[in-house]
């Protein structure tokens, strides 16, 4: 994802003749699309196995809560990206930190949901629920780790104006994780 930051590229590829950014952007979008298909398969399986019914009562307050937290973290991620693009490193870092904390809060929320779940993985809804939230949480956790790396690097002044692709790409990944949840939330909690 942070493909561009590897200096080995400069000498390879067309380097100076055309910019790497559009190429990287296309690559990361294709990655998102491909990953989205995996999530789509899981969501489709959920409907295949249990129809459009919701066999268990879920903790709606918790669901709405973690959904709001994740949605809000997209805003902070957006603000961080915009700030870095305009050289406002201090604000950018603060917003990154907020994103990281909210991401962690989301993961903890999912973990809590798992601990209070009164269904088991071998139950048909449990099958869908645990594999979907588990797969998504794996992406959230890896996203948080990536964001921490970006946060630390930003502190060392690695992302001056015009060289913020690493921030942009990680923030895009974060939004992607949010988009997946945009579909998973109604699929698991509301239908």
């Amino acid at each position: 994802m942070a493909v561009a930051s590897a200096p080995a590229h400069a000498e390879h590829g067309h380097g100076s003749t055309h910019s790497r950014i559009p190429i990287n952007r296309m690559g990361i979008w294709l990655f998102f699309f491909s990953d989205a298909l995996l999530f789509a398969m899981l969501a489709a399986s959920r409907f295949y196995l249990t129809g459009t019914e919701r066999p268990h009562e879920l903790n709606q307050a918790l669901g709405l809560g973690i959904t709001s937290v994740l949605l809000l973290s997209s805003l902070t991620a957006y603000r961080a990206e915009t700030a870095f693009e305009h050289g406002n490193v201090a604000h950018g870092r603060a917003m990154l930190l907020a994103t990281i904390l909210m991401g962690a809060a989301f993961a903890i929320g999912v973990g809590f949901e798992w601990s209070i779940a009164h269904w088991v993985p071998s139950d048909p809804f449990g099958t869908a629920f645990f594999s979907m939230t588990g797969m998504h949480a794996l992406h959230v956790v890896s996203g948080v780790l990536f964001l921490i790396v970006v946060y630390v690097r930003a502190g060392k002044g690695h992302f001056p104006v015009g060289n913020t692709w690493a921030v942009t790409s990680m923030v895009m990944y974060w939004h992607f994780v949010d988009v997946v949840w945009v579909f998973f939330y109604p699929t698991l909690y509301l239908v």
Binding site: S34, D35, L37, L38, M41, L42, S45, L49, V120, P121, S122, D123, P124, G126, T127, F130, S131
Partner: peptide, 22 residues
């Protein structure tokens, strides 16, 4: 399309080790 195979294999793996019941 490759994600189809990946998803199918993953579901089998979940069934094997995580006790799900796809």
């Amino acid at each position: 399309f490759t994600q189809g195979f990946a998803a199918a294999l993953l579901m089998v793996l979940f069934d094997r080790v995580l006790d799900t019941s796809f």
